[in-house]
Design a protein around this nucleic acid. Structure first.
Lengths: 174, 174
DNA sequence: TTGCTCCTCACGTCACGTGAGGTGGC
DNA sequence: TTGCTCCTCACGTCACGTGAGGTGGC
C-alpha cells in the first residue's frame, strides 16, 4: 500500500496529477483510510505503469481511459489513430522549421542573396501551411511597409525588373 | 476600412480570434465607429499578415507581441529559440512514433516473434523518454498481470531461460 | 419591422499547477 | 505541541470557441 506522494515520486509525477487521475476515474486508489487518505495497492501501481506508458505515446487521457477499460478489444484502432495523427503533427512542425529557417536566412542576408528561386519559395510557404489569402496579404504588407525591400526580394527570386514592377502594381491594386 | 468579420474571412480566421488579439493588444483596430464597431485599416491588415506568418511558425502570442513591438531589434533570438524548441518537439514526437509502432507490432505478434533484442528494446523505450522508474514499474506490472507473457517477452529479447527466471525474481522482490 | 452584423460578458476546453484553509498521524 | 502529510475546493494556464443577451444599420 502506497500513499499518494509515494506513488507520485515513484513514477516521477506530481501529487496533483494523481489527484486529477482520481477525479476522472482513470486511477482511483482501491482503499481509503478512516481519515480519508488515499491508499494505492500494487494493482493500482500496475495500472499507473500502463497509464504512463500510454502517456509516453502522447495519447489523450480520454483515449487512455478507453484503452484501460477495453483491455485487449479494439485497442489497435486507438493506437493506429494516434500513429497517424503523429505523422501529421511531425510534418506540421517540420514545415514550421523550414519557414523559420528561411525567415532567419532572409534576415541574415537582408534580401541580397539569390540562394532561393520563386518556385522554391512559394512551395516552401505552401508547405508551411500558408494559404493564398495569407500569401497575398503578406505581399501587400511588404509592398506597403518597405516597397524597395519588396522589389529587391522579387529580384532575389530570379524575377526580371519589368515583371517585378507588374507584380507590385497588381499587389497594390488588389 | 474593414469590419471584423471581413478581415477574419480574408485571413481564414474566426471573429473570436480577432476579438482575442484585440483584447491582448496584439491587433487593435485603429478606428471605432460611433456605435463602437471595430474598423480595421490597411495598416492593421498588414500587421495581421505579419502576425499570421509568425503563427505559422508556431510562435506563442507572447513572443509575437515582442516581435511586433521590437520590429527589427533582437528578433533573431526569439526566432532561434523557437527553432531549437521545434527540434526538441519533433524528436519527442518521433520517440512517440517508435513507441507506438512497437506497441502495435507487439500486439500483432503476441510476444512470439524475435525481431527485437534487449538492447534495442531498452534503447527504444529510453528514446521514447521512459525513465528507469517507469520501466521497472512496467516490468513489475507485466510480471504480476501476466507472468507467462512476461517470461515469453524476456525470451523474445534473446535472454536465456535461466536469466529470465532471475530477472523475474528480482522484479517481484523490488 | 425584419434580418443581419456587431457588441460585451462569461464560461468551457486540456492536463494539470498552485495556493487557501483545514485536518490527521507520529 | 511541532512538523509533516494529507484532504477538498477553487482558480489559473493557452489560444481561442461558444453561447447569452442586447444593440446598431439598411
Amino acid at each position: 500500500m502506497h500513499s499518494i506522494t509515494e506513488l507520485a515520486r515513484a513514477f516521477g509525477l506530481s501529487r496533483s496529477t494523481l489527484l486529477y487521475y482520481d477525479r476522472f476515474g482513470l486511477l482511483s486508489p482501491s482503499v481509503r483510510t478512516r481519515s480519508n487518505y488515499r491508499r494505492y495497492s500494487e494493482g493500482d501501481k500496475a495500472r499507473l505503469a500502463t497509464l504512463c506508458m500510454y502517456r509516453q505515446a502522447g495519447l489523450s487521457l480520454e483515449d487512455i481511459g478507453l484503452l484501460l477499460a477495453a483491455e485487449q478489444d479494439g485497442t489497435t484502432e486507438v493506437l493506429q489513430r494516434r500513429l497517424h495523427s503523429l505523422g501529421e503533427e511531425i510534418r506540421e512542425l517540420q514545415a514550421q522549421q523550414s519557414l523559420l529557417a528561411e525567415m532567419l536566412q532572409v534576415k541574415a542576408r537582408g534580401w541580397h542573396g539569390t540562394s532561393v528561386d520563386k518556385t522554391t519559395w512559394v512551395a516552401m510557404l505552401r508547405a508551411a501551411g500558408m494559404n493564398e489569402k495569407a500569401m497575398d496579404a503578406w505581399h501587400r504588407e511588404f509592398e506597403q511597409c518597405a516597397p524597395e525591400a519588396h522589389h529587391d526580394f522579387l529580384l532575389s527570386l530570379g524575377i526580371s525588373q519589368e515583371e517585378a514592377r507588374k507584380i507590385r502594381e497588381q499587389t497594390r491594386a488588389s
